[in-house]
Every structure is written in structure tokens, then in C-alpha cells.
């Protein structure tokens, strides 16, 4: 199989609300400039472009078509789009390189979560006949999972708060983070529930943002990056769409993707866990021991731009390798209610 590596990563500042449009152009133009600048590639040298975004997040049909303006896509480009987080766009790009049709690719994701009422919009991801007509919001759904774990003795509210404390603290070193700083567990636990048993600190903030990751094959990667993050495993799976038929204390799709991708061997992991308890759950499903550094960027709890945050996890994990802080790292992305769909990308330095 062709050797493919991540050679660049950039993201827009994670913010509660941008002044920009829902087509992402204002966020993407500087992100493209930054990521291409890092790699020394001109846009004409990008062999394949692939994006991830959502019409319902934007509130418009075909909301992604204007985003290609940010590329400056003329002469025409080889390009595709997934109605998923940009992490799956990166997967499609990786596959494209493996076919030999391209030796470089740029995947991007963008989302203006602030345009609508996010937790209500996400109710439309549920079964359209027997669940969505009740409009269960995404935070309440996650809270069902959190309580199961608390009552099963899998985690405590204090451990959940510890995840938030560590995230905010780690995010202090991440200039793109939306939330960062020093908080303490006791103080967090004194605050009210927003969806009992979840408090505000247990939930990722609502974030507008965009992210881009550049892939390259073999010698092209070596030429454009001093320390490429070589992809050694890239896998994704989906679980049942029926919340009540799933064991919500497991994420078989994450576990299977992790096993197939070789998650057990990493020293660093960026997990797309929009809720504190999900980080604990994912650590277990992916077999990440205490020695693994999790979410050194602060993770989604410090900024969760919908449809870009999963891609940003892979980019952040790759950045740890490219900067020499990690030898072997994974980026994880999730989609759907209560960790229904999961993707794992394992990378290493060589």
C-alpha cells in the first residue's frame, strides 16, 4: 500500500459566534492560506480536494457549493464532498491517494454551529418516524448515556469534571481554543445541571470553525514536511441508529475501528468526545492506558466546530507528531447521537 502522511494542519479560531456566512468562505480562505503555506504547496499542486459540512447546520440546501469559492476552483479541481465531519472527507482523500489518482490532497470541514439552535437541529439526526417528531435534543440524549455510566459505576460526576478541568488546562497551550484556563473540580460540581446529570462543563461549547489537513504520498510528503505523520491505520465503523437497541455504555464501532487501525500502540490521542463521559468511554473502547496523553489540544470540550472538529482531532494529533512531541498518535472522530459512528486514524513518525 502507498505510504501516505499528514503534512499540514490549520484551523480557524474556535469561537462561539463568527460574523461570517454559513458557507464557511471567510474561515476557509485564511485556513487554506495557512495550511498551504506550511507545506509549501501551491493550490494547483493539490491533486484532490474533499470537504465535509452539513446543509442542516447552515439551514440551506447545497450550502457547501459556495465553499469551493475559497479554493479558487478554476481551472477546475478534482473534488468531492461528504455530508459528514471533515474527518470522513480526509478518509475519502486518503483512499483517493491509495488509488494512485492523486499524490496530494487537502481535506477540509467547516460549520457555523451558531446559525441555528444546535441541540435542536441535531434532533433531526434521529429516526424520522418514531423519535425525531419528539425533538429530543442532543444534550439530553448524551445525558441518558452519562447517567447509565454513573449508575453502572463506570464513571462519576467528579471524574467527568476532572476531564473538563484537564481539557481547559491543556487548551491553554492552544491558541485556537474557545475555552481554556484553570478551573477546579469542586467549583465545577457546585454549578447547576443543564441536563441532569450533565452540567455545562460536561458539554462541548457551541463553536463556529473550520479545519484543513493536507495529505501527501511517499516522497512528496518527505519533500514538503520535515517530520510527516505517516498514516498506519485509518478505519471507521457505524453502530445501530436505534438508541434503545444499542448498549450505550459501549461504542463497538469505535472499538472495532480502533482495533483495525492499531489504536493500542499510540502514545498520544486526540479524541472527539463532545461530552466529558464520552472521553472516559472512548478511552476504554480504544484501549488507551494511563500512559497515553489524551487531548493535548484541549479537545472538543475546549472548542467543537461541528463538521470540522473530528478533522481537527486528526490534525491536532498529526501536529503533535510533526512537532516532535509524539511518536505515534491517533486522531478520532465521531458522528451521530451518543457516539454512533466512529473513525480512528493512527499516525507515526519515521
Amino acid at each position: 500500500m502507498t505510504d501516505v502522511a499528514v503534512i499540514g494542519f490549520a484551523q480557524a479560531p474556535n469561537v462561539r459566534r463568527t460574523d461570517g456566512t454559513t458557507n464557511g468562505v471567510e474561515m476557509l480562505v485564511p485556513v487554506f492560506q495557512q495550511v498551504l503555506g506550511q507545506t509549501g504547496l501551491a493550490k494547483e499542486q493539490v491533486g484532490f480536494w474533499c470537504s465535509g459540512s452539513s446543509d442542516y447546520l447552515a439551514g440551506r440546501a447545497f450550502s457547501f457549493v459556495s465553499a469551493v469559492d475559497a479554493i479558487g476552483a478554476f481551472p477546475p479541481v478534482m473534488e468531492s464532498h461528504v455530508e459528514m465531519d471533515g474527518a470522513w472527507a480526509l478518509y475519502e482523500a486518503w483512499v483517493k491517494i491509495l488509488t494512485g489518482e492523486a499524490s496530494t490532497a487537502l481535506a477540509y470541514g467547516f460549520g457555523k454551529s451558531s446559525a441555528g439552535l444546535l441541540r435542536r437541529v441535531l434532533a433531526l439526526q434521529l429516526d424520522p418516524y418514531v423519535v425525531a417528531p419528539l425533538w429530543p435534543d442532543s444534550v439530553s440524549i448524551a445525558a441518558l448515556q452519562a447517567r447509565l455510566g454513573i449508575e453502572a459505576g463506570r464513571w462519576t460526576e467528579e471524574q467527568m469534571a476532572q476531564v473538563a478541568v484537564r481539557s481547559r488546562s491543556a487548551a491553554a497551550g492552544n491558541p485556537a481554543a474557545q475555552l481554556s484556563g484553570t478551573v477546579d473540580v469542586a467549583e465545577l460540581l457546585s454549578r447547576p445541571y443543564i441536563a441532569d446529570p450533565l452540567r455545562a462543563h460536561d458539554c462541548a461549547p457551541i463553536t463556529d470553525g473550520a479545519a484543513a489537513v493536507v495529505l501527501a504520498a511517499g516522497d512528496v510528503a518527505r519533500e514538503h514536511c520535515a517530520r510527516p505523520a505517516w498514516i498506519t491505520g485509518f478505519e471507521h465503523r457505524i453502530d445501530s441508529g436505534s438508541l434503545g437497541a444499542r448498549d450505550l455504555l459501549a461504542a463497538p464501532s469505535a472499538a472495532a475501528a480502533g482495533r483495525a487501525a492499531g489504536a493500542g500502540t499510540v502514545d498520544t490521542a486526540e479524541l472527539h468526545s463532545p461530552f466529558t463521559h464520552q472521553e472516559i468511554l472512548l478511552r476504554g473502547e480504544l484501549g488507551l492506558g494511563e500512559q497515553v496523553t489524551v487531548n493535548p489540544s484541549g479537545g472538543p470540550l475546549s472548542g467543537n466546530p461541528m463538521f470540522a472538529a473530528g478533522l481537527a482531532r486528526i490534525g491536532s494529533a498529526a501536529a503533535e507528531i510533526m512537532a516532535g512531541r509524539a511518536g505515534r498518535a491517533l486522531g478520532h472522530a465521531t458522528s451521530g447521537p451518543a457516539l454512533q459512528q466512529n473513525l480512528v486514524c493512527v499516525m507515526e513518525a519515521r
Binding site: L117, R119, R120, A123, P133, L134, W135, P136, D137, S140, I141, A143, L144, Q145, A146, R147, L148, E151, Y193, I194, A195, D196, P197, L198, G244, L248
Partner: peptide, 14 residues
Amino acid sequence: LTWSWTDHPVDGQP
């Protein structure tokens, strides 16, 4: 089997 509590229902909820 499990539950969560909503203090501020959003439009359309039961």
C-alpha cells in the same frame, strides 16, 4: 432504564 432531566424544553418537545 436511564433518564435525563430537562428544565428548559425546546420547541416541539412533548
